[in-house]
Simulated scan of single mutants.
Amino acid sequence: MSPAIRTVLGDIPPEELGTCDAHDHLFIGSLTLPGQELDDVEAALAELNAFGALGGSAVVQWTPWGMGPRAEELPGLSRRSGVHVISATGLHQARHYDPDDLESVRDGLAELFVHELTSAPVKAGLVKVAGSYHRLDDHARHVMTAAAEAHHTTDAPIGVHLEAGTAAMDVLDFLCGSHGVAPRRVILGHLHRFPDARIHRQAAEAGAFLAFDGPSRVHHGTDWRLLDSLAALADTGHINQVLLGGDTVTPTARSTADGPGMPFLLSGLRPRIESELGPDIASAIFTENPARAFAARWR
């Protein structure tokens, strides 16, 4: 079976994905951000259109189960904008949910993930999980165990929220060492928030994809080190494992409001990468690497 990327409009060959925002959100809501939900369909369309106008052709929404992904809206947005959209299943940290909601799915997580990947009206193309700060708590281990089972059933990639960019190697030890997930099927997110070049290199040497995402987060103080992190990975031969995403999670972070949003990846970051690291590296990060990271031999 040939690899394919599972979009909300169906499976496509990897070479059709194009320029990709590898981690972002069109819709999301959390108990930790009351009143700051992304839930406006027309605002989501405007953001997609702005990204597409700069040559963007794909966005991966990492919003998991229970956080308002509004999967039913994604096919229409993809058609109207002409931008491929990949949706996610999975579960975030426990603090983002009502405890009763978590309890209702706790004993059937793997089955839930497989259903959303293979049988839901709008199929997901990614399982999203989350670590805790510098460790894996019991909730993370439970969710990651279910994600590994769903991966082995479907071959879906697993995207990981690393809290403040930490615990990358703990995640790989657990998913890959304990549960047999191939490292190349794991995407480690938020690594720029903990800009330790040694950890980045170790994760890359293990075989995982490394996602640097979130330049829309004005309260993070490490964005100025992003180019240094990318250059270090290029120098050690790991640039083909690097992804970039916007990770827009509040209305004010969108380009149509006060933030750089999705378009900044192409209007701000890509020109700098092309100038400082070269156009081939930019092409790898934005086009070639996502085509491999999100492809699966779906079962």
Rank of each mutant, 00 (worst) to 15 (best):
residue 263 P to N: 08
residue 223 D to M: 09
residue 233 L to G: 01
residue 248 T to S: 07
residue 270 R to E: 00
residue 241 Q to A: 03
residue 230 L to H: 03
residue 269 L to V: 13
residue 234 A to N: 09
residue 226 L to F: 03
residue 253 A to W: 14
residue 227 L to R: 06
residue 251 P to W: 05
residue 240 N to D: 15
residue 269 L to Q: 12
residue 273 I to W: 02
residue 260 P to C: 03
residue 237 G to L: 00
residue 235 D to I: 07
residue 260 P to R: 04
residue 263 P to M: 06
residue 269 L to H: 10
residue 263 P to W: 06
residue 262 M to P: 05
residue 257 A to I: 09
residue 236 T to W: 07
residue 254 R to N: 06
residue 241 Q to R: 08
residue 266 L to C: 12
residue 240 N to M: 06
residue 265 L to E: 02
residue 268 G to D: 04
residue 230 L to R: 04
residue 235 D to K: 13
residue 261 G to W: 10
residue 235 D to Y: 08
residue 255 S to V: 01
residue 258 D to H: 14
residue 242 V to I: 12
residue 232 A to P: 12
residue 248 T to Y: 05
residue 225 R to I: 03
residue 239 I to Q: 08
residue 224 W to G: 13
residue 252 T to M: 12
residue 263 P to G: 06
residue 270 R to K: 06
residue 267 S to N: 07
residue 231 A to Q: 13
residue 245 G to H: 14
residue 253 A to N: 12
residue 255 S to E: 02
residue 268 G to T: 03
residue 234 A to E: 09
residue 258 D to P: 10
residue 265 L to S: 02
residue 266 L to E: 11
residue 234 A to P: 04
residue 262 M to K: 07
residue 272 R to L: 11
residue 253 A to Y: 11
residue 242 V to D: 08
residue 233 L to C: 01
residue 246 G to Q: 14
